[in-house]
Simulated scan of single mutants.
Amino acid sequence: MHQTLLIIDIQPSFNPPPWLISGIQPFIGLLPTVATVERHNESHTPFQRQLGWHPAPDDDSLIAADRIFIKHGYAPSPETLDYLKSQNPDRVLVCGLQTETCCLAAGFALFDAGLQPTLITDLTVGSSLDRSGGLGIRLWEHHFRHTLTSSELLASLGTS
């Protein structure tokens, strides 16, 4: 099965837990990897005006992915989606931060682009509303059905 790993917003502004970074690392080199980094640009997305906070304007990914794309807002950029579509994967594996916002937005964008989004449930962290990510996982299962754990993925890749 041809699959690509999409890593959502693992960057300093969002202070990802160390276990999340170390949980993603084993997949680097095993799968093609794409990471998004959310950068603040108020003219693109009004985080400060509407929410009273914003990500840094110059963050970089804390994961050394094969390709890194900058985004402004919740969803992946059109360039990210074009790149993923050009890879013609059977599925796009999603992990990272904000299960019920940025990861879910990525799921909708991938789905709308004709790709199969699949959430790695134990490699995601929810927003401050639900740090467990449970709400986002339930929404993901409702909208896209496809989920798996990192151990299931490692087993499918022949490395457990």
Score class of each variant (00 low, 15 high):
114 G>M: 11
144 F>H: 04
122 D>S: 06
150 S>Q: 04
151 S>Y: 07
111 F>A: 12
128 S>V: 15
115 L>E: 08
95 C>R: 04
107 G>L: 05
85 K>H: 10
148 L>V: 04
116 Q>D: 06
125 V>T: 13
126 G>R: 05
136 G>F: 04
87 Q>C: 07
138 R>D: 12
145 R>E: 15
132 S>L: 13
141 E>H: 04
91 R>F: 01
100 E>P: 02
98 Q>A: 12
123 L>F: 08
138 R>H: 02
146 H>S: 15
149 T>W: 10
123 L>C: 08
97 L>P: 01
86 S>Q: 13
113 A>W: 01
92 V>M: 06
150 S>K: 03
114 G>N: 07
108 F>Q: 14
110 L>Q: 06
149 T>D: 09
137 I>M: 02
125 V>C: 10
92 V>N: 03
120 I>K: 09
100 E>K: 01
129 L>I: 12
143 H>F: 15
98 Q>N: 12
90 D>L: 08
147 T>K: 03
89 P>T: 12
147 T>G: 09
134 G>R: 06
114 G>C: 08
97 L>M: 15
99 T>W: 06
107 G>F: 04
151 S>K: 11
125 V>E: 14
93 L>Y: 01
100 E>F: 02
101 T>Y: 12
149 T>Y: 07
94 V>C: 07
94 V>Q: 10
147 T>H: 06
149 T>A: 04
85 K>Q: 14
97 L>R: 02
124 T>K: 02
97 L>D: 01
113 A>T: 03
135 L>V: 11
99 T>I: 11
105 A>H: 09
123 L>S: 05
103 C>E: 13
135 L>D: 00
105 A>Y: 03
91 R>V: 03
117 P>V: 04
110 L>I: 10
115 L>D: 08
94 V>P: 03
128 S>A: 15
89 P>F: 10
137 I>D: 00
139 L>Q: 12
139 L>T: 13
109 A>M: 02
138 R>E: 14
106 A>E: 10
148 L>G: 08
88 N>I: 13
133 G>R: 07
112 D>H: 13
89 P>I: 12
110 L>S: 08
106 A>V: 14
107 G>H: 04
127 S>Y: 00
89 P>E: 13
116 Q>W: 08
136 G>A: 11
122 D>R: 08
123 L>E: 10
114 G>K: 09
140 W>M: 05
123 L>G: 06
129 L>M: 11
144 F>T: 01
117 P>F: 01
135 L>E: 07
